[in-house]
Design a protein around this nucleic acid. Structure first.
Length: 275
DNA sequence: CGTCGCTCCTGGATGC
DNA sequence: TGCATCCAGGAGCGAC
């Protein structure tokens, strides 16, 4: 579910509430959400630790704790992190509740149970599988059109699956990949290496633009996504192609099509995004 | 190494 | 209404 803009929105909303607070205890209702630790050790390890800040890398959230410990969280498809009062009714699929020293709670809910929470030593963060192999951050200085050109030169895969490859560029998911390709007027089935320099430049700009819009609109709430306070975003109203199959293209009026590419649903305008 | 298909889950939509 | 099937915003894994 959450892609870079959603994870960034959650990061901002939670940092505001959690920074400087201390974890005082944990309740775990579904052990498998914790990766590499049993609930007892997990609780012991974080209890008494102050929250120094929250970082995002790709679609990962990293809660930095005092004493050189980091909690790495991935929400996958349906994960949610909610800061709320203890009186708030416990939502279905709430698998972990963190108790804070302000009496409030941080709750982790995940309908499909794909999400993961993992504790690591901060100095081991760079070696963590998943983090270690993340590609370039789309808003970093390293993400240039020259970088894209160079990286795509020898890639024989289709551009859509490449955009979803987190070891290539970090943070893009199915919604923003479709939106970026539409904005750049590139068909999702184009072989990456065959894009012209002009097309690569357009794609570079389009990726940043759709992700930035997503953040400014506080995320895309289609089904489950809400921020750390339970508030939905508004970016779903701005989507040009994702989920709009059968509806007219905003640019040319032709019906948007939906097709499975690399095992993922892809939405595009057959006239604006010719093969 | 790059690429592909399968898999982990629940539940909403769709079809018969 | 009931039941079966398909599909969903992600990514790790094994196979080739």
């Amino acid at each position: 579910m959450p892609e870079l803009p959603e994870v960034e929105t959650i990061r901002r909303s939670l940092e505001e509430k959690l920074k400087g607070k201390t974890f005082v205890g944990v309740e775990v209702f579904l052990d498998k959400m914790l990766k590499g630790a049993n609930p007892e050790d997990f609780g012991t390890e974080i209890s008494g630790r102050k929250i120094n800040g929250i970082e995002r890398r790709g679609k990962y959230l990293i809660i930095h704790l005092a004493g050189g410990v980091a909690m790495v969280i991935h929400l996958r498809m349906t994960g949610q992190l909610l800061y709320c009062s203890p009186e708030q009714e416990k939502a279905k699929h709430t698998h972990v509740i963190f108790h804070l020293n302000d009496k409030c709670q941080l709750r982790f809910a995940d309908q499909r149970q794909f999400g993961k929470i993992q504790l690591v030593q901060t100095k081991e963060l760079e070696n963590l599988a998943g983090i270690k192999n993340l590609g370039v951050e789309p808003f970093s200085d390293a993400f240039t059109r020259e970088f894209l050109k160079k990286e795509m030169r020898n890639r024989r895969t289709k551009i859509k699956p490449l955009l979803l490859d987190q070891t290539f560029v970090a943070g893009i998911g199915n919604i923003y990949a479709d939106e970026a390709l539409f904005l750049a007027r590139i068909n999702p089935e184009r072989v990456a290496a065959t894009l012209s320099p002009r097309e690569v430049s357009q794609l570079h700009l389009a990726i940043r633009e759709v992700l930035l819009s997503g953040i400014e609109n506080k995320g895309t709430s289609i089904k489950d996504y809400v921020d750390g306070n339970g508030n939905p975003g508004t970016n779903q109203d701005k989507l040009k192609v994702y989920g709009r199959d059968g509806q007219p293209c905003a640019k040319c009026g032709r019906a948007v099509e939906k097709k499975s590419i690399g095992g993922r649903s892809s939405h595009y305008c057959p006239r604006c995004q010719k093969l």
